[in-house]
């Protein structure tokens, strides 16, 4: 049994993000290396994210939004799936 489709943003992720808009975290990219992205959020916190969906090239200073429940990293070019690194 497997319904794992980790290469795209799934409809269930979009539904969660749309239904719960208050959960988005706005921020700026402060570092990017391979699939790892570090984002400084507007509340002063910092998140380290691991992109598991379609790759996206991000540069420091780029504005992004992250939805921690839907695991969507939204950039100016595309939305992808990213998970908080342990």
């Amino acid at each position: 049994m497997s319904r794992t489709i980790s290469q795209a943003v799934l409809p269930i992720q979009r539904a969660i993000a749309t239904a719960n808009p208050s959960a988005w975290w706005d921020g700026l990219v402060i570092g990017s290396s391979g699939a790892e992205v570090t984002v400084a959020h507007l509340d002063g916190s910092v998140s380290r994210l691991r992109v598991v969906g379609p790759a996206v090239e991000l540069v420091a200073g780029e504005p992004v939004a992250y939805h921690p429940v839907a695991e969507i990293l939204d950039t100016s070019r595309l939305a992808t799936t990213a998970r908080i690194s342990a």
Partner: peptide
């Protein structure tokens, strides 16, 4: 408001999960 939005998201996610489960 945060609680209601989260409940709405939970309801939608659970409905979609249940729908997918029904084909399994």
């Amino acid at each position: 408001q945060e609680c209601m939005e989260s409940m709405n998201a939970c309801s939608m996610a659970a409905t979609m999960c249940a729908g997918a489960d029904m084909g399994m």
